[in-house]
Design a binder for these strands. Structure first.
Lengths: 257, 257
DNA sequence: CGACCGATTGACACAGCTCAAATGAAGTGG
DNA sequence: CCACTTCATTTGAGCTGTGTCAATCGGTCG
């Protein structure tokens, strides 16, 4: 049923981005997933390039390392997200994948997913939208790292996370079971671990969040969003203007800038 | 001939990512571009959403603004790059486009490009690769902003810029005519204008670059790259492993993570 | 010549970093 | 059930990279 839930999360999201048929849903349900538990912080590398990964439970992240053992998390994947989808097309463009806290990850051959997308233009379109949103997320992170101070950065991360979870039917009550280390937070926000601690404490002191080892609870969403200058606009996958003539055209997919 | 050169830059790059036929080249050459000069710093908005833009000469950038008039440049486009390609698919995912220094920009209807890509799977594949590289660039910027100090950040920006220019046949001699403001540099690197100035001076003092109002010249590439911890890996569009079965599948396009 | 814009400098303030040590929580083995 | 280890969080103190403010300088253009 773990897997069942993950399908439904994925579907929830896809249906938001495009109108799916029963056949489309079957295509998704028939994907040959092999599920595995991954330890906190462990790398996800099984069949890298050949396979891609669906986050079933918990979180995964892509990261990059610099000299002096510096680490930067470049993307975060929540349940229902796919990771490692481009490795087979462009191996050089791959990032290191690992679990953020303990996670349940399903691997599947890229071919299989590719096939499904090839069969359903609607699925393909939904995935293309997804890709654009991911690019938008990256840009938002750039803005955050470049122009927000630490407190706002962490606040923004929380807002984004909760918002994204909500689009797959989680965190409806602003509560998230989440086992991140403060080092994880630091590496995601480009700050030091010590400072991450101080920022978290400040967020608590301001009564904006409740955040422990095991869970995160947003106590005052509006104030948090205001502090972070967060709006969820960039995360919306809905087509605002749908044009018939464009539904069937897979080509423009990843032009995204 | 301005336009002719821009076609050839675009082709240079595309040929590197995929094997094109004469027909493919014609498809590109037949794109209905309307070229225009854009003043330094001016916004590029003509027919936003309906049209996308090919940089012919100079530079363009995507940026985002935060309260307190803070500005962050989230992407840079060099000659031969397309910008604004996703607006019509997902309007919310659009960024502000503007010229960095005076530029020559060609606009064309998204439909036209879409059509060309629809007709040639090879072109479509090349553009998909392009999209993956753009995502890789965004991730690299995140790492830069999060974990490099100002000097290395600026150095990295220069390296990336020169490297990208070289893939379209420019800056072969490490010389670039470039009319950026130091404020532009600051906004790209997430630092203050004053500090940008000091960093540039330091780069000069170290004899790594020569950088004025009008041009940029890298004097010691190796040292600059070492300082920036730069490698061009993430910018390579070449298929390392080409598999026949995958050439024709447009779907996976923008799954990019 | 004046006006304007970008580059440059200097002085000072502060956010965030580093180092180092203490505290706390969870798990292991005896 | 108690040492003992281990790992994450927390705290303190001092340091430094970068930001802010406010002038000044220099070139360009009308």
């Amino acid at each position: 049923m773990e897997i069942g839930r993950s399908y439904s999360r994925l579907l929830t999201r896809l249906e938001r981005a495009a109108v799916l048929t029963g056949a489309d849903r079957e295509l998704i349900a028939d994907l040959p997933l092999s599920v595995a538990n991954v330890e906190a912080g462990a790398a996800i590398t099984a069949g890298h390039g050949e396979r891609c990964f669906l986050v079933v439970n918990g979180f995964a992240c892509g990261s990059q390392r610099l000299g002096g053992n510096k680490r930067q998390i470049t993307s975060i994947f929540v349940p229902g997200d796919f990771a490692g989808l481009n490795g087979f097309l462009l191996p050089a463009a791959t990032e290191h994948l690992s679990a953020l806290g303990p996670a349940v990850i399903a691997a599947l051959p890229c071919d299989a997913l590719e096939d499904a997308l090839h069969r359903s233009p609607r699925l393909a379109q939904a995935f293309r939208r997804r890709g654009l949103v991911e690019a938008a997320i990256l840009r938002e992170w750039i803005t955050s790292l470049g122009r927000r101070e630490a407190l706002a950065r962490v606040a923004h991360l929380i807002c984004e996370l909760v918002f994204r979870l909500q689009t797959v039917g989680l965190a409806g009550d602003l509560y998230v079971p989440i086992c991140w280390t403060q080092v994880d937070v630091a590496d995601a926000c480009g700050i030091s671990a010590v400072h991450a601690n101080r920022v978290v404490q400040e967020l608590r002191r301001l009564n904006l969040v409740e955040w422990t080892n095991k869970h995160l609870k947003v106590r005052d969403w509006d104030a948090l969003a205001a502090l972070a200058e967060f709006t969820g606009d960039y995360l919306r996958e809905q087509a605002v203007q749908v044009r018939q003539s464009r539904i069937e055209t897979p080509a423009l997919a990843s032009l995204g800038n």
